[in-house]
């Protein structure tokens, strides 16, 4: 398997090198109009007189490259507003500053970004999203004057969502801190139609099914809470309990299942391997020792999810 992959990778690299050899066909000549070029050059030069540290960094940034590549007429003033007064009075009050003490409201700042980005499908739900309605500025998450275009979610999201930092590092967690799952895999920070949690799906189960396709069923015998909401039993951000469970098994199961014989039996400190009354309803994986098909069963006989 590994050898096959190695072959595939080598072929991919070969294709990649060939791709570069023919790249000129995509390389549209930059045809700045004289007026645009003059505006860019003049304003860029004027701004760089004072902000000399920002100018080269911006040229390497996503916006800088995109504007150049797209032959855009955008300048520093596209985001920072008119600089006419600022040239005479170089204070933060005379320019749209995105610094914490810049004195501009979140709405004013976001308006600058939305002037261009509102028409992108990514921002379809911006107005209704929790971030927009709770005064989160675009610049709170996005840094424009750097070469990185992607957001370092592990640091940015936890700036406000502090408890989530603790949760993702708990013993049972999704591989977020390992870099394999990102906040944006489940949530859309730019807003979603879902009324809670800004999740990337119509409901929790449809979100979870995107990775856990084996839990979609349909099953012959169903477990109702599984079918309604995965989050009844699982805490997706992390848990001190195995399998991201919201409570320990058997406690979680017994919160719902009281029936004749063992569902209603207490499993106390005597029922572990070393106790005076060991019980296979408690030690090891407890209820899951027998009820292995807890998400649903395709057996044609109802064995209470043991088959």
């Amino acid at each position: 398997m590994r050898r096959k992959f190695l072959t595939r990778l080598s072929l991919s690299l070969a294709v990649f090198v060939l791709l570069f050899m023919g790249i000129d066909q995509f390389d549209r000549p930059i045809t700045l109009t004289q007026a645009h070029a003059a505006a860019m050059d003049d304003m860029g030069a004027v701004c760089a007189d004072c902000h000399e540290d920002l100018s080269p960094a911006f040229a390497q940034s996503y916006h800088g490259r995109a504007w150049t590549g797209m032959n855009s007429s955008s300048t520093c003033q596209s985001c920072h507003g008119s600089a006419d007064k600022h040239i005479d009075d170089p204070s933060r009050e005379t320019i749209v500053s995105y610094n914490k003490d810049g004195g501009r409201s979140t709405e004013e700042l976001n308006k600058q970004c939305l002037n261009c980005h509102v028409a992108t499908s990514m921002l379809s739900y911006w107005e209704v999203g929790a971030h927009s309605r709770n005064d989160v500025a675009c610049a709170s998450c996005h840094t424009i004057h750097t070469s990185r275009s992607s957001v370092d979610q592990l640091s940015v999201c936890f700036t406000c969502h502090r408890s989530k930092r603790g949760e993702i590092s708990k013993r049972s967690h999704h591989p977020v801190q390992e870099g394999k799952v990102q906040c944006s895999d489940c949530h859309n920070p730019h807003g979603t139609q879902s009324t809670h949690g800004m999740i990337n799906a119509e409901n929790v189960n449809q979100l979870c099914y995107q990775c856990h396709a084996d839990k979609r069923g349909p099953y012959v015998y169903e477990h109702p809470p599984v079918e309604e909401n995965c989050a009844i039993c699982h805490a997706p951000h992390g848990s001190r309990h195995a399998k991201l469970l919201t409570e320990k098994v058997p406690n979680l199961c017994q919160d719902c299942h009281d029936w004749s014989r063992h569902p209603g039996t207490p499993y106390d400190g005597k029922t572990g391997f070393t106790g005076s009354s060991p019980s296979n309803r408690f030690f090891g994986r407890s209820c899951l020792n027998c009820h292995g098909a807890i998400h649903g069963s395709t057996s044609f006989e109802n064995h209470a999810f043991t088959r």
Binding site: F20, I23, F26, I30, G69
Partner: peptide, 10 residues
């Protein structure tokens, strides 16, 4: 890699 409007990354 950046060239004009085109970009590529690995």
């Amino acid at each position: 890699y950046f060239k004009g409007s085109y970009y590529f990354g690995v």
